[in-house]
Design a protein around this nucleic acid. Sequence first.
DNA 1: AGCACGCCGACT
DNA 2: GTCGGCGTGCTC
Length: 810
Amino acid sequence: MVYVAEVIVDVPAMQTDFPYTYLIPTEFGDKIQEGMRVEVPFGKGNRHVQGFVTKINYYESLAELAEFDMKEIVALLDLSPVLNPELLSLADEMKEKTYSFKITCLQTMLPSVMRAAYQKWLVLTDEVSDDILYGIFKGQDEITWEEAIASGQLGQLLKLRQQNSLDVRYEVRKRNRSKVIQAFRSRLSFERAEEERQTLRKGSKQKEALLLLLQKATDTQYWTIKQVQEEIGINRSTVKAGEKNGWLEIFELEIQRDPYAGREFETETDKVLNKEQQLAYDTITESMATQQEDVFLLQGITGSGKTEVYLQVIAEALKFDKTGIMLVPEISLTPQTVQRFKSRFGDEVAVLHSGLSTGEKYDEWRKIERKEARVVVGARSAIFAPLENIGVIIIDEEHETSYKQDETPRYHARDLAIWRSRYHHCPVVLGSATPSLESRARAQKGVYRLLKLNQRANPTAQLPTIKVVDLRHEVTHGNMQTFSNPLLEKIADRLTKKEQTVLMLNRRGYSSFVMCRECGFVLPCPNCDISLTLHMDTKKMKCHYCGHEEGIPHSCQSCGSKKIRYFGTGTQKVEEELQQLFPESRILRMDVDTTRKKGAHERLLKQFGAGEADILLGTQMIAKGLDFPNVTLVGVLNADTALNLPDFRSAEKTFQLLTQVSGRAGRAEKKGEVLIQTFNPQHYAIQLAQGQNYEQFYQREMQTRYQGNYPPFYYTVQLTASHEEENLAAKKMYEIVKKLQQVLSNNCIILGPTPKAVMRVNNRYFYQVVLKYKQEPGLSQVLKEILMESQLAMRQGLKITIDVEPQSFV
DNA sequence: AGCACGCCGACT
DNA sequence: GTCGGCGTGCTC
């Protein structure tokens, strides 16, 4: 019998995007399983790469299959499969839908620590001159490839290689190390320990203590070395000596890095559901009990208690001995959210989000794999949680764009959730106060089942009043500042009443920059067609596209004038202004700069919740999930910056943001007030947000989409080509359009090619084409062909990307 | 991706 | 005549 494995190798390229067949050495025969990672030789030389076993086959004899020479698998990288059959098959779906490589999909499903690290070594195999041995190899018999390059002696080394004095060694390293600590257990019987103790020299206090410890041990008892060192004062060396004498056995203990260790979670019990919540709960759990693959759209106004429904539905799944996934947008994965889940489900919850260190993420992932956690809460990538027997998948804030990954593979968590629900015959719940037009339209058509929550869960809380301030009016009255008079009055009022204020600065489509007052020159990025953003905290000018940094200019690069104006209502600037206006007030600023450090987000919110500040000033991130009873005023400083973006979703995004931030006011008995400052008070997104009227917004926006032939009436695909030379990128895009036109029907709308809004990024020029279509059977095939051809174009430095249902067109 | 093979210009 | 440039093709 000959066993072979089909392996997807870690070489992300079109030409290698299929399984390669490797012989399974007999020593691995009983251990290897589908879904494990292996190390395999690939290509010329001693190159080794990581691969995923996707299939194991066997044949009666080698003659049956060998029309080529097969190589053997070198090593197993896992003890048990890291991907189960479901996830392996999900990878196929992803590859197909996102036009990406299978290997990329497989890697994406795992925590980043499990991606292989490769190390190339140069190994001396013969005597060499002292010059080389000490000069380049520093007396060692091997150096890394990086060190070889740094030595600047590659020519010399190449010669050695030809003389066979040098070998190249490749190493595939696993980076996923569980955190282990050393522990030991006794190997002595009571009597043997007693005997050993008699032989000890006088004064061997530590050894005696150790023997006494071992003597009274039960069979399964063990201690960690650290523990005995701290508690009893037995040194590491004493324990080691004990091991040598055969008293004890040292072993490694896998420990969990629990990011929430040492924190108390109050146990929380189910709240009583109101009629609407109960109906939603009943409908969803009924679907779960009968193993329907329904997709529910749970449309509930802010404060209607969607989360309570989620929690109880998951609890029900657990009762059926099933598991549950809940996806939350990254920014609302706050400690408050985590706390709520932990207090309800205790240790059964695994949390996956970017705030965790890579090690912590790996441990949470292992917890799920070992089936210690049956509930997973996390951001987008938590949709790959290796849970089995899923009872329900919930996506909260369903409309959030962060559910779509903006790099390859460009998958949408919602689509994958639906795919997994079909595999497990379980329902999906999409929840939002302001559903995406796509989802709401599907619910309208009956593709999804619509559930509505129109009442606030806490009926004593009154709805906030929402006012719109016309900034055009304010400007003509000579008020050029960030704050309109009405807003200033309200803030002052709250300060005297000792109530809290939340101010939001809409950063989307907006950034602070420096401009010359004499000639109007704005400092651009040398690599991109965009102005540099002013960062006061680091005192640097920074490009948000390529990361370029330089100092803040003191004179104009163009005309030499020293009159530089620091433009911008970046949050820092607003904070300064605010402090000047209200010198006595305590202000907390929350933006990317102040929340970069681990735990900073949590700390700021805690401070604000404890009443240590009067005003919380922040960007979009404050729009979600905050629930502070003493907040009675919410101000939106610039509601409309996003409205001017050339994106058909700009109205939708603005409406969603305003609705969400309005929900931050008046969470308790005190009545809340919301003030929206805008230059477009007549815009329907703002008007309808003021009226908190989602339904009307939906109707109105659907009309706009219908007229513009946009989603949800049309599907969209965006193709992008980039090159260092502008005309080459443009030329390629024209070729692609030509090819598309030959295949696609007349009903397909092709927009472009056009240069992207920011045409040059990192010294590359970007051109795009957007396709809008209803039904194009030939599309998938032609896109694959384009991708195939683009593989060759790569050599000329041309990059092509395909984005199915892009979230942003800018 | 990374490596070897192979076919054309500036050097011993 | 050779060393070495990088275009092209292949990897079980």
